[in-house]
Simulated assay, not measured.
Amino acid sequence: MKKFLLLSFFSISFISFAQHFNSADYPKGVYETYEDFRMKTPSQTPNLSSPYSTDSTAYRFNNMDDKGKKFKKAFAISDGKNLYIQIVNLIKKFNSEDKGQSYDGGIYYLKAENKGGYLFVKDYFVSNSAAMWGGLIASASARRKKAVIFEEEKESFNLFKNLKDFQTFMEVNYPNVSLDLEKKKGDQKLDEAEIVAQNLEKISS
Rank of each mutant, 00 (worst) to 15 (best):
V177M: 09
E35H: 08
E182I: 14
K28R: 05
D165R: 02
F10R: 07
N22V: 12
K202R: 04
F61T: 06
G68Y: 09
L48N: 07
K111T: 04
Y34C: 13
I85S: 00
V196Q: 08
G134R: 10
N82Y: 02
P27M: 00
I12H: 01
Y118K: 09
K72A: 01
D66V: 10
T33Y: 01
E35K: 15
T33H: 00
T168K: 05
S78T: 00
K122M: 00
L6F: 09
K189P: 02
L90W: 02
K164S: 08
K111L: 00
K67L: 03
G105A: 05
Q167K: 14
T168D: 07
L90E: 10
K145R: 02
W133A: 11
L119C: 15
S205R: 10
I137T: 13
D180W: 03
D65G: 15
G105M: 02
S50M: 12
I12E: 11
S78N: 11
R144N: 15
I203P: 02
K111F: 08
S56D: 04
S8W: 07
F125C: 05
I137S: 13
S23R: 05
V88T: 12
L200I: 03
W133R: 14
T168V: 13
S141A: 14
L159W: 09
L6R: 08
S50F: 08
S43A: 03
Q198N: 13
S141G: 12
S11W: 11
L83Q: 09
E192P: 06
S11F: 08
V88C: 10
D79E: 08
F157G: 15
F9R: 09
K2D: 01
K115H: 05
K185L: 00
A76S: 12
F10G: 03
A24C: 10
Y84F: 15
